[in-house]
Amino acid sequence: MASVPETNVLTSKKLTKKDLSKSFWIYQLGCELSNSYERLQSLVFCASMIPAIKKLYHDDEEAQRTALKRHLAFFNTEGTIGSSIQGISLAMEEEKANGADISDMAITSIKTGLMGPLAGIGDSIIWAALMPIIISIFIPMAKTGSMIAGIAPLVLYTAITMYISWVLINKSYTLGRNSIISLLQDGKIKQVIYSANVLGMMMMGALSASYVNISSPMELVVPGGATIVFQEILDQILKGLLPLSAVFIIYYYMLKKGPRYGVIISTIVIVSIIGALLGIL
């Protein structure tokens, strides 16, 4: 009698949209709040992976502990674009739970290798371009005393960044670990970053020119009754010379000393008071 060959039926472990949503919201609500000096965002990233890990390794507590430990390694990136790493990690954990030959080091290495480049992309596009554009839209409304201008930028910024993050985590999960790697290897991403930087700098320059207002009331009466107005002389040299000088001085200080905002604000206040008392500014 011929023997019937045995068939190994593997139960496929699959994450659902609900599982992705749980991980997404845990990370997004805590990625900028849970930072520790030792591991930065690793705590909230690990917490965001818990629902998926419990589902994928529900029958193996040791595998759950191992998975949690590997996601407690140092991690830090820009929160919006960085959600791509979360999607890739979820895809790799799913493959590993289904028996794929993926080592712990492979998952950690993907996270470590991508967090720096994606942080650069996120800072250039989200913080240096998107945020200044949104703020500049509502500043004129704020100057008129509109309450909406105080709330709308936060709502609009949150809605846009959340949408970007949601799309990226889903796309990255679907495409797997090759999704962002192929994007980084494409030369067009450098053009996107460069364009975002240029746009962000243009917006910051426009904001500086519009809202940094410094002038000198100094006048000098010369023999013969003629009056020399110093501000008119400065305007002939370069329109807006004093505001431009102030912006570049602050920029140079931040470049050399870092963003020490308390020192910068205190210095501006002191210089303004002394300049007003002496009649210089």
Rank of each mutant, 00 (worst) to 15 (best):
M162T: 13
A159W: 05
I164C: 03
K171A: 14
K188W: 15
I180E: 10
V167D: 02
S195N: 04
Y157A: 08
N178Y: 12
P153C: 03
S195A: 12
I181L: 14
L154P: 00
L175K: 10
L183H: 04
V155F: 06
L154V: 06
S195Q: 05
L175R: 08
L183N: 00
Q191I: 15
L184N: 01
N170A: 13
I164H: 03
S182Q: 09
Y163T: 13
T158W: 04
Y194D: 08
L183D: 03
I180T: 10
V155W: 08
I160A: 05
I189N: 02
I164N: 02
S179L: 15
L168K: 00
I189E: 01
S182E: 10
V192C: 03
L175C: 14
A196L: 00
T161L: 08
Y163Q: 10
V155K: 03
K190V: 15
S179C: 13
V155S: 06
W166Y: 09
K190G: 14
S165Q: 06
A159S: 10
T158D: 10
V192I: 14
V167A: 06
R177V: 08
G176M: 05
T158C: 09
I193V: 15
T174Y: 03
M162Q: 08
M162D: 06
S165M: 08
L156R: 01
S179P: 11
I180L: 13
Y194K: 10
L168T: 04
A159T: 04
L184M: 15
L168F: 04
S172I: 12
M162Y: 09
Q185G: 13
S179A: 15
K190N: 11
S182N: 11
T174M: 12
L156N: 04
Q185I: 12
Y163W: 11
L156F: 05
V155R: 00
T158M: 12
V192Y: 06
I181E: 11
S165C: 05
S182T: 14
I181K: 13
I160Q: 00
